Amino acid sequence: MDGPEIIVSFDPDLHVFVAAARRAEEGARVRTDGASSLGHVVESLGVPLTEVGSLTVDGRASEASHVPTADERIHVSPVTRPQPLPGPPRFLLDVHLGTLARRLRLLGVDAAYERLDIGDAALAAQSAREQRVILSRDRGLLHRRELWAGAYVYSHRPEEQLTDVLERFAPPLAPWTRCTACNGELRPATLDEVRPQLRPGTERSYDTFALCTACGRAYWRGAHQDGLNDIVADALRRADARAGGVQGSAQG
């Protein structure tokens, strides 16, 4: 590029996206082309705009559309938590996040999931069409202009992924109300309705059943219940703690 130089610094929470040479607290000099927007410059340095909460230019708040000029000092901050959305959080997860999708559904969170690799363009188009937040560890996908909203999943461990998403978006939780297989809503069911799907002996051991209104899958409290209960209890405990912290801050 043959244009003005600017000085760009990033909050430490964004360093995962930025080359080591550009992580200095005082910032790093970056040469621009003199025509690109600040948002484009930030993305060219590796940070998806989905992860940017605010931008400042010489200490003043700025929009991503600003075109930087020589010697301006830019600071890039991460999104605030919980991150506000126009409506109730609804998610779309890429092919690599199946376990996270099932755990979100277990908590009653609307989480669509693509089992096949349908490609970044199709995922971004689905995000826009259904107004869903894409969750992905694919940075390239999060750079696509057509997606409605997105968020980078920072960890590769499902339990940490779940905590991160719940803390970032604070979706309402309604455990045991969604099908973990297809994301459909569950309804109470009688023994007669679910009997064809029961394992031998199950009807003598359990008396509470549900059916998915979308795919017809039957649910009952099985031997795996303790592990699922632990996931639900931990998520509810964290949600209560967050709600208490927000209320305390507001009163303070």
Results as ranks from 00 to 15, higher is better:
231 I>H: 08
209 F>L: 06
13 D>H: 15
13 D>L: 13
205 S>D: 13
50 T>S: 13
203 E>C: 01
117 D>C: 08
181 A>G: 09
23 R>C: 02
69 T>F: 02
241 A>W: 04
243 A>G: 11
86 P>L: 01
154 Y>Q: 14
114 E>M: 13
79 V>Q: 14
56 T>K: 14
9 S>L: 07
165 V>N: 03
56 T>F: 01
221 R>T: 12
84 P>W: 09
143 H>E: 13
87 G>M: 10
193 E>V: 04
127 S>F: 03
87 G>D: 15
49 L>R: 12
72 E>V: 05
163 T>C: 01
128 A>S: 13
25 E>V: 11
232 V>H: 00
168 R>S: 09
69 T>P: 00
211 L>A: 07
211 L>V: 14
177 T>H: 10
66 H>S: 11
203 E>Y: 07
110 D>Y: 07
165 V>C: 02
144 R>W: 03
123 L>Q: 00
17 F>P: 01
5 E>I: 11
41 V>Q: 05
29 R>Y: 00
243 A>P: 08
211 L>K: 04
176 W>C: 06
38 L>W: 02
190 T>M: 08
23 R>M: 07
70 A>Q: 10
33 D>T: 09
234 D>V: 11
101 A>L: 09
219 Y>K: 08
222 G>R: 04
167 E>A: 15
45 L>I: 02
162 L>N: 07
138 D>H: 05
246 V>F: 12
14 L>M: 08
122 A>L: 12
196 P>E: 08
42 V>N: 01
31 R>V: 14
208 T>E: 13
219 Y>S: 08
112 A>P: 02
81 R>S: 10
165 V>F: 01
244 G>H: 15
29 R>S: 14
192 D>M: 01
127 S>G: 04
26 E>A: 12
134 I>A: 07
96 H>E: 12
211 L>S: 06
236 L>H: 04
251 Q>S: 14
212 C>Y: 10
91 F>D: 02
169 F>V: 03
238 R>F: 04
97 L>E: 02
91 F>G: 05
149 A>F: 06
166 L>V: 09
93 L>F: 06
107 L>P: 11
68 P>N: 10
71 D>L: 09
49 L>D: 05
209 F>I: 05
83 Q>C: 14
53 G>H: 05
14 L>F: 06
222 G>N: 07
31 R>D: 01
139 R>G: 04
157 R>I: 11
116 L>C: 00
91 F>S: 05
233 A>Y: 03
4 P>D: 03
148 W>V: 03
247 Q>N: 12
21 A>W: 00
126 Q>A: 06
197 Q>P: 08
250 A>Y: 14
95 V>A: 15
197 Q>D: 12
129 R>Q: 15
240 D>K: 14
111 A>M: 10
112 A>I: 01
150 G>R: 07
113 Y>S: 07
185 E>T: 14
237 R>Q: 14
19 A>W: 01
101 A>Q: 06
